[in-house]
């Protein structure tokens, strides 16, 4: 190999490795951890400050928490309110549970969305983009927690759901509900940190908490985590949703699509040619003539 060629090859090899290295560098930069919130239901006093803070932050219906006695009935989040607090009468007294989007690690709603309007940001929140959404409501069908809500009485309806105050996170602030909570029932942080705190609490007070952290593995892990003093079934949680991330249920089907498109046309064409050949032969040799 002469000198010139050697230089050329070296240059080519370098050029080939360069972008590869850049991609690697980008990947490490992209490793922003998912944020989430730890909800300790033993600390919640049912003051509903979070409901008010959330609605004010997102220009939604602000509930009159002093007079509307909404705790009397079980509520779900709605197209008017992204978060609600429910009261449960249990063997350990009153328990208050705040509900909102759990911001799954692998959300069913974003896998369902055919326009990427439902989007899992790299910071953790699942957000909705009205410029893309076509209102098919497949996210609502797919969400195991029934969180996305649709404005049925608007000519230009929106999907309404908690976005973990994505705009505030961008500015380095905490979600509005976390900031409004007077009893530290809500704690904002990365899931790794939150898991450590949650486990710490369970180990230190093994009699106070049930030994499960809701959202650790449920539906493949969620951004929001819950601690409770009584079994989660009794305070309105579905505990039979499994630990498989929901998008995995469609994985096989989606993968088989290109397989079918590769193989079936060739198979059909082959059948077609085969029948041609058969007809020719039978004409020539008078095979099936009786």
């Amino acid at each position: 190999m002469d000198r010139r060629n050697f230089l050329k090859t070296t240059a080519a090899v370098c050029a080939a490795t360069l972008p590869f290295k850049n991609i690697k560098a980008e990947e490490t930069e992209m490793k922003t951890e998912f944020s989430g919130v730890l909800v300790d239901t033993t600390r919640c006093i049912g003051c509903r400050s979070c409901e008010v803070a959330c609605s004010k932050e997102h220009d939604l219906y602000v509930p009159d928490i002093k007079n509307d006695s909404a705790l009397e009935s079980l509520r779900t989040t709605s197209e008017k309110q992204w978060t609600v607090v429910n009261r449960f009468e249990t063997e350990k007294g009153e328990v208050f549970v705040k509900r909102q989007c759990l911001h799954c690690w692998q959300p069913a709603c974003t896998a369902a969305c055919l326009t990427n309007a439902m989007y899992k940001t790299k910071e953790g929140p699942v957000t909705w983009d009205g410029d893309k959404c076509m209102g098919c409501r497949y996210c609502m069908v797919s969400c195991p927690f029934d969180i996305p809500k649709f404005e049925y009485n608007e000519w230009n309806p929106k999907i309404q759901k908690c976005n973990m105050c994505f705009e505030r996170l961008q500015q380095g602030k905490k979600p509005a509900c976390v900031e409004a909570c007077p009893t530290d029932a809500l704690m904002f942080g990365s899931k790794r940190q939150l898991m450590e705190v949650a486990r710490h609490r369970v180990y230190n007070y093994p009699d106070k908490y049930v030994h499960k952290i809701y959202g650790e593995h449920d539906v493949g892990g969620t951004g929001w985590l819950y601690l409770s003093a009584i079994p989660f079934e009794q305070i309105g949680f579905s505990t039979d949703l499994g630990t498989t991330p929901y998008p995995e249920y469609t994985k096989e089907f989606l993968f088989s699509v290109p397989l079918v498109l590769f193989s079936i046309p060739a198979f059909l064409l082959g059948l077609n040619l085969l029948t041609n050949r058969k007809n020719e032969l039978s004409e020539k040799q008078g095979w099936k003539n009786e």
């Binding site: 896998a111 055919l114 326009t115 076509m134 098919c136 497949y138």
Partner: peptide, 17 residues
């Protein structure tokens, strides 16, 4: 917005729909 997944400004490849 029905044209969104068709014209390619927001392909949601991950969706069965």
């Amino acid at each position: 917005h029905i044209i969104n997944p068709i014209i390619g400004n927001s392909f949601g490849y991950n969706s069965v729909l």
